[in-house]
Design a protein around this nucleic acid. Sequence first.
DNA 1: CCCCTAGATGCAAATGATTTGCAATTGCAT
DNA 2: ATGCAATTGCAAATCATTTGCATCTAGGGG
Lengths: 149, 149
Amino acid sequence: MSGKTVQAIVNTLKGRGEKITPARKGILEVLASTDQLLNVAEIYEALRTNGVFVNYSTVYRTLDYLSKNNLIEKLVVTGENKYKLLKHREHIHHLICKKCHSTQPFDYCPYDDLKDIIKAKTNFLPLEHRLEIYGYCEECQKKHNSNYK
Amino acid sequence: MSGKTVQAIVNTLKGRGEKITPARKGILEVLASTDQLLNVAEIYEALRTNGVFVNYSTVYRTLDYLSKNNLIEKLVVTGENKYKLLKHREHIHHLICKKCHSTQPFDYCPYDDLKDIIKAKTNFLPLEHRLEIYGYCEECQKKHNSNYK
DNA sequence: CCCCTAGATGCAAATGATTTGCAATTGCAT
DNA sequence: ATGCAATTGCAAATCATTTGCATCTAGGGG
């Protein structure tokens, strides 16, 4: 399903004269295979599951590299660094479960109005934003209820 | 100006049977004296400027303590832990300058509508949120312009 | 006002995530 | 196939934060 996405990104990189290494392709594939935000340890483990045995420092360096090239995005969630693929200029926020720490994308964003309000009320020039919603995912709501049934 | 705020908080703590120590009062005073979000080093330095010479580990422990007692709030901004006073149940977001890292409070929040949209579109139960706006503060816009005049 | 004790603090060492220097390796243009 | 700049592995360094333990202190009871 996501092979196409990764291949497109890889082609973009090649077009820029960048090298395609197992770490780079591997991390893109890992991130392309899920909707979740992943932390560094999860990425490291997923790589070896996929047969890509790279060093931790390579994972860090590659995540940096991909971020700087705007291919992935790094977010800090609950004190943890998490990463996701940036597909075709999408604008997505995340719903983060306070119990199981799963994340799901959510495609509505109130920023357009917000930006106008800030410009009207202040002299601050808004350029970017982050928005995260914390609560309970469907699974954890069910579990919680069944605990007390 | 903020002496009243701090005294009110201190009284709240006393009412709960908590001890008032120099570190606790000092940190509340430091945070009450500014609109900015402060990081740990800034708080540590401000304390000594105010004549409160406590250990770094005490600063960390006290910040934890005050957070757990809902008197201050901890946010992670640009990879840094920052703290602010929680006054009278206000609901405030922050405008964060990408250049000088100054922060200013902003009192509009689009969450009420957002919450309804999430409930309508998903099975996620939204409880809390974080929203931060990044851009350039008035000062840095001016400086930037004068660089190119 | 002094004493007592739970809780707070100082200090130094431990931790855990991330970064870095350097030598060895590898992708890919020629 | 060859050469070189860029990438990687490894181990050590770094940085913020946490922790164990001995000492100290805020503030309630006498």
